[in-house]
Design a protein around this nucleic acid. Structure first.
Lengths: 341, 341
DNA sequence: CCAGTTTTTGGGAACGTTCCCATTGCAGTA
DNA sequence: TACTGCAATGGGAACGTTCCCAAAAACTGG
């Protein structure tokens, strides 16, 4: 069941392929009657252009890669939605790869995308430094890279999309303090990404400001899955570290932590208030609902897509840093907390 | 920064493109020394074959489409993982499209994939009948379709991957009854997909067997998101329908329902036990953890990928129905329920 | 040393497009 | 009538491969 090609139409209509092509592309150097005949024949035989041939002709693959640490939580899915909203209407394919928070896997993914000839790559990295050399190489070979959420060091000349982690984290911790928390633990993300560090800084800064910072309150985690949140609380329990608030790197960590607290019979927010960064439906689909910094994830994807398109169009386009606004939304997990010490 | 092509190598080594190609493909009709020279040059100039050209040559796009109702919950993400595990190593690209539970959107997605020339499509449909004609057309035009989870009517000759919904649903409802539930509500999925109907049948059959079926216990929903689960419980409350157990179509519905119950101060599982179908991390990352039918989602994806590969290799390969086993896992949401009437 | 065989290499079409550069046909003008 | 100018069409290269077929080179053995 071979698909109809321009050649088929050319034979059928006794016209050259050039004319067919022109008619199909609405080139004006074609007699209206001819165009009509061509279009009718195309319709009749259900002609659709062969995108592979076009890609070869134009030297593009019309596809872009999307590399994320994981797709299990809705985070990447929401960003992806934004990316697709922009790219699909333009005829781009989007290829998704998961790195499982493993820099080696990320490396493989990037190389795979290169062999697939993608026109650009949108990337949420899983380790700030390990693959930096590779990013450079790939860009030198001509494939633009755009980062979102977790971005590489400033030294790398790439476009980035982020929210202001430090400020939003500060505001959130301030909120926890304002409702009466005096021992706000921080469940930190992987220390190998800038985000984690920024948010942790916010936490430290605010608590220090209030004279209530204690380094024991900062718990390091291996990843950002529910499990890691659970483990973090376990650690606090094991070390007998008191806490009446938790500020978590992500909603997944927060939820993992919260569930473990609830299982242990700890009241949330009565005994421990919880807040985190989010932007996904997770924050409202738990009980109690999570107070969080709502990142505009769809917009983040849209912005990243726009940036990569710019770079594809003009490989010398200058890199941009887009900082999106994120809103603090207060929900049940930080409500009805004792409002005085 | 043009990429090195075979022609470049051909010029550099004063060899014909044929010989270069042969050397690169490890064809044995090439002098070992020549091969060595070629490989070295290829290495030196970092030659990598142009996949677009290959695709054109071979008349394939080496890509397959993956169409799902949504990607917000981990369900599709897990299946996708299985799909990718099989397809990426073979050099296939996977293109993901979300239909938002909207048959029209699904239609557009399928047509888009066709224009992208995918070699095959793996599909989780969102309405059993509306697009059936389109499925047929697409297959007639030469693109194989493989369904998983939500499958079309038996009359359509396609490969399918599912679990035995009716049996597993029955077993789960039986479990709820066995722990003492007498009024087991069912939060049904969209009535337009076979799955929903099958699971609802299981629910009805078991309750009828025990003489405790009441059609009022069956709540219809518009979708399968958290919200829909919430709405379902609201409906039961509004209509003043008593219930001491819930069997939900999916974990998302169950969690939405559970959260609403908890917000209303209802004890889970003390006053209402909850169970559902799952297979994702959601079932263990809520409090209390959810008893559920754990579907082997990764395997489901792998199976679907294998099936589509079969069809790609041989367009006349006969269709297969793969039924995967799913395990019932009992967790806190159905524990410590009164064990006698 | 030559005919015959085998190994190694080269030429060029093909995949489906687009687009540059002719070529054709015809109307209008000198 | 002969020429110019323009509209409409056709020819064919190019994108980067593979692979069929032929040609050349390198071996055989008598």
């Amino acid at each position: 069941m071979k698909r109809t090609t321009i050649k088929d139409l050319s034979k059928y209509l006794s016209l050259s392929t050039s004319t067919i092509s022109r008619a199909l592309l609405n080139d004006e150097n074609v007699h209206p009657d001819t165009r009509k005949r061509v279009l009718e024949a195309a319709e009749k035989f259900n002609y659709r252009p062969n995108s592979t041939a076009l890609n070869l002709r134009y030297g593009k693959s019309k596809s872009i890669g999307f590399v994320v640490p994981e797709m299990i939580t809705p985070f990447s899915a929401k960003v992806l939605q934004g990316v697709q909203d922009i790219l699909y209407p333009l005829g781009y394919k989007v290829m998704i790869l998961q790195s499982d928070e493993n820099p080696m896997r990320e490396r493989e993914n990037l190389l795979l995308l290169e062999t697939f000839n993608v026109d650009g790559i949108i990337l949420n990295l899983c380790h700030e430094t390990i693959n930096e050399g590779l990013y450079k190489e790939i860009m030198q070979r001509g494939t633009p890279l755009v980062f979102f959420d977790r971005i590489p060091a400033k030294s790398l000349d790439v476009s980035r999309v982020i929210v202001d982690d430090h400020i939003k984290a500060s505001l959130m911790v301030e909120h926890l303090v304002s409702i009466g928390c005096r021992r706000v633990a921080h469940i930190m993300g992987p220390a190998t990404v800038r985000n984690s560090v920024e948010r942790a800084k916010g936490h430290k800064r605010i608590l220090t400001k209030h004279g209530i910072f204690d380094s024991e309150l900062v718990v390091k985690t291996g990843g950002t899955m529910f499990e890691d949140g659970k483990m973090a609380v376990k650690k606090l329990f094991d070390k007998n570290i008191e806490f009446d608030g938790i500020f978590a790197f992500t909603d997944t960590l927060a939820i993992g932590a919260m569930n473990h607290l609830l299982e242990a019979g700890v009241k949330v927010p009565g005994e421990v208030a919880i807040a985190s960064f989010s932007g996904t439906e997770l924050s409202v689909n738990v009980f109690p609902q999570l107070t969080s910094v709502e990142q505009p994830l769809v917009s983040m994807g849209e912005a990243a897509a726009e940036l990569v398109l710019e770079k594809i169009k003009d490989s010398n386009a200058e890199s941009k840093n887009v900082v999106l606004n994120a809103e603090l939304i207060y929900r049940a997990s930080t409500l009805t907390k004792k409002s005085s010490t």
